[in-house]
Amino acid sequence: MILNIRVDHKTADIKTMESSISTLDDLFLNLKSKCNVEEYISLRTCNRSEYYMVLSDNYLGEIECADFVIEKNEAAMMHLLRLASGLESMIIGEDQILGQIKDAKKKAKKEGSAGIVLDTIFNKAIHVGQSVRKKTQINRGSVSIGSAAVNLAESVHGNLKCKKVLIVGAGKMGTLVAKALVEKHLKAIVVANRTHDRAVCLAKELGGYAIHFDRLKESMEDADVIISATGAPHAILTYEKVKAAVPLERRNSLVMVDIANPRDIEDEVSNLGVKVFNIDDLRGIAEDNRKIRKKEAKEAEKIVENELLLLNRSLKHLKVEPLLSDIRSNMELIRYRETQKALKKLGNINGKEKVVDKLTKSVVDKIFHDIVLNLRKAAENDEEELIKACELLFNNEN
């Protein structure tokens, strides 16, 4: 059984997502202890936390939880294909989710938690995500959480021309914010990151400058916009830090946008008069984006539905791949033995042994081709008795 358990922006606000992450992890560990979890991949972004699992049986017991979405088999796979296509993102069509899915798969493969089933499913999802973006215009223009954060800041200031923007965090989300700011004719772009070298690299691309994290306070003093997107496990811009850094007369004009999960900015900061926004506040921009891309989304959904059929077929083929591998190995062993016998009987054939070898390989390949087609067709049609019969007929070393 394929299982997906998740909490995301569709079912929870940012506060609920933050508090649910540890619960989701506990639920996963509980499943691992009670069920045979053969494979798993964890996926985390700024507005979702998910687990994809392959279980050896269909029994789960009672795992229902109000905060989570739990889907099995085809529904779970459909969600992943839609996710890779940008259809499940808060900002419809955004490209970043595709890279995040690739990274999650790569990490799981490296750690040994992903096997052939999830590898097949995630490879298909990546292919579908690429195909959707190639065949539709769902990702045209500026579509990312980063660009939405910049739009949110502009909705307050009117525009950002001649404004000073401080970006806290030079990771992937910070980079998206930076790219969205390039054409805004800013007075200054300042990048702060715990790893100073990364801040320097990003600042160079933008024509801005980098600061060490311990100089964050002085850069906050005259900033017009602060956009924070770090991977810190706790708030880094606390009430006390902002109060100490930002002069009283500047607080009403300061816009702070938090696109981190967990959040970087404490809720209490808004009590200072600062305009504080987080991922939940991007929903209005996301809805406008959804309306613009409605037509492209429909085309993407058609692609996803067709690809899901192909994915189901591929997964059914996996059931007979071990049998096909055994048959092929046994056929090759027989071919080799009989070829060697024939060559001994033929005696000196003036260096034409390769011709005989090639001939026997060709015969085996042609016979095996038909076996592959028939066994895969039997798997597609769930013809278990026929597959068992083939195991008896072919899978032997005698």
Results as ranks from 00 to 15, higher is better:
235 A>W: 01
294 K>L: 12
332 E>R: 03
170 A>C: 09
259 I>H: 05
287 E>R: 11
151 N>M: 09
383 E>C: 08
337 R>C: 03
42 S>W: 03
3 L>G: 02
42 S>V: 14
52 Y>W: 07
185 H>A: 13
66 A>Q: 09
297 A>I: 09
29 L>A: 14
378 A>I: 09
264 D>W: 02
138 I>K: 01
215 R>Q: 14
53 M>F: 05
287 E>W: 03
340 Q>S: 11
232 A>N: 06
95 D>F: 05
271 N>Q: 07
393 L>Q: 10
185 H>P: 02
238 T>I: 05
27 L>T: 11
83 L>Y: 14
235 A>K: 11
117 V>P: 03
265 I>S: 01
196 H>Y: 14
249 E>G: 03
219 S>Q: 15
187 K>D: 14
77 M>V: 10
44 R>Y: 06
395 N>C: 14
136 T>W: 07
327 I>E: 00
113 S>G: 04
389 A>G: 12
397 E>D: 11
129 G>R: 02
39 E>Y: 11
330 N>A: 08
115 G>H: 08
27 L>N: 00
20 S>M: 01
170 A>D: 05
353 E>G: 04
68 F>Q: 00
161 K>H: 06
78 M>E: 12
272 L>V: 06
159 N>D: 15
324 L>C: 10
248 L>R: 09
309 L>W: 01
24 L>W: 04
53 M>W: 03
2 I>Q: 09
25 D>E: 15
272 L>S: 00
92 I>C: 12
176 L>E: 14
75 A>W: 03
261 N>F: 03
233 P>E: 03
150 V>Y: 00
270 S>V: 11
19 S>Q: 13
136 T>G: 04
118 L>A: 05
197 D>L: 13
154 E>G: 07
48 R>I: 05
305 E>Y: 06
2 I>V: 09
162 C>L: 08
268 E>R: 13
12 A>N: 12
199 A>H: 07
87 L>P: 00
119 D>E: 15
287 E>Q: 13
113 S>Y: 07
382 D>L: 06
74 E>H: 08
179 K>N: 15
43 L>E: 00
